[in-house]
Simulated assay, not measured.
Amino acid sequence: MSKLKFAIIGAGVWGETHAYLYKEHPDVELTAVCDVNMGRARELAAKFDVPNVFDNHQEMLRKADIDAVAIVTPDFAHGKIGVDCANAGKHMLIEKPLATTREDVEALVEAAERNNVRVMVDLHNRWSPPFAVAKQSLDSGELGDPVSAYMRLNDIKWVATDMLPWAAKSSILWFLGSHSVDTLRWFFNDEVDQVYSVSSAGVLKKLGVDTEDIYQTILQFKNGGIATMENGWITPNTHPCINDIKFNITGTKGMINMDLSNNQMIERFTEDKNDRPDVLVRHFVHGKPKGFAYESIRHFVDCLVSGEDFLVSIYDAANTSLVILAIFESVASGKPVKVKY
């Protein structure tokens, strides 16, 4: 079988994450990189020996010989790029979320169906070993039926102030809340019926980033389960991990607790700092990319080759985006809001 020819749109930090996996995968040939910043595109292409470089995705779709595209742009740009790729007949791995407006969500689903292309959204928390093990316990029946859950998924301030130059055009709900909603939908094996959320702002605005600081959200599922969800990006920069992750799932027969950012599995102390190195998300072992951020990308490739279904369907991702849109509506109205599917 010939290799699948891949292109990356978006040459930032996560575009590089995709490039590491594609260059290692035996079934992939990374043939093109595209970014509106040509200098950044050339830099990524040079690092990974990619022959074709573009600063316009439509030109790339016309000229490059590719089978699949990784869309690794800021979240608000996913819609048009994704529809263009679908219309060009390219399979897609889209970084979360699928899209940030109802119109873009619907347009992407319609374009994928009409063009018979396969689409997965990189909601990679489903590949996190602690969450996968917890889900296995739930599915085996040893926890009983899920009743309630709590999920905290926060970032330190640096993510909004330094890592993401486009943070003011997005929200922590899109950046991390999409993972939270998808994880909770996955655990409850159910769709969210109603949401209620409140938010707070001021810390980041004083630092020059015009976006909300934090959201506290209650999700009510159609079969009666309830979950509390916290997403913020004002955790102090001295926190030992970029993320602050806590999780609880309580069932009729048992429960599971997780602390994935303040545990003592590995601690590093130097003359200048104390931190907890990442050994779960994105790291290297003997020069090879490891961690669940790479495993979700590998899954996309493997399923393209095998024809198997993706663990995250485009419909999963669409419903996750629609839940988040309902959360924004709840914050604006101060009332519970039914999710409109």
Results as ranks from 00 to 15, higher is better:
C85W: 02
E267P: 02
F269R: 15
D162Y: 10
D35W: 05
K288E: 07
V339N: 01
C34P: 08
C34I: 01
I314A: 01
A201Q: 11
G15R: 03
P51F: 04
D27P: 04
V192M: 08
C85Q: 01
G232H: 03
V301W: 07
Y150V: 03
I242S: 06
V285L: 15
N189R: 15
P146S: 13
I8G: 01
R102Y: 13
V285C: 09
L164Q: 03
D139R: 14
R276I: 15
D155S: 12
A317T: 01
Q220N: 12
E103D: 14
K246I: 02
V121W: 02
A86D: 05
V72Q: 05
R42S: 12
R126Q: 10
Q220H: 10
V53S: 08
E191V: 15
I242M: 11
C241W: 01
R62K: 15
I327G: 02
K335A: 15
T100H: 02
R62I: 10
F175E: 01
L164H: 07
A45N: 04
V36R: 07
A201W: 13
L280W: 05
G307T: 01
T228S: 06
L143C: 06
K222W: 00
S261E: 01
F76R: 06
F247Y: 14
S313Y: 08
K273H: 12
D210M: 09
S128F: 07
L176H: 07
V301R: 03
S178P: 00
A317Q: 00
D122T: 10
G202N: 09
H179V: 10
V36C: 06
V323Q: 03
K338A: 14
M258N: 07
P165M: 08
K273Q: 11
V28C: 11
V109N: 03
Y315H: 15
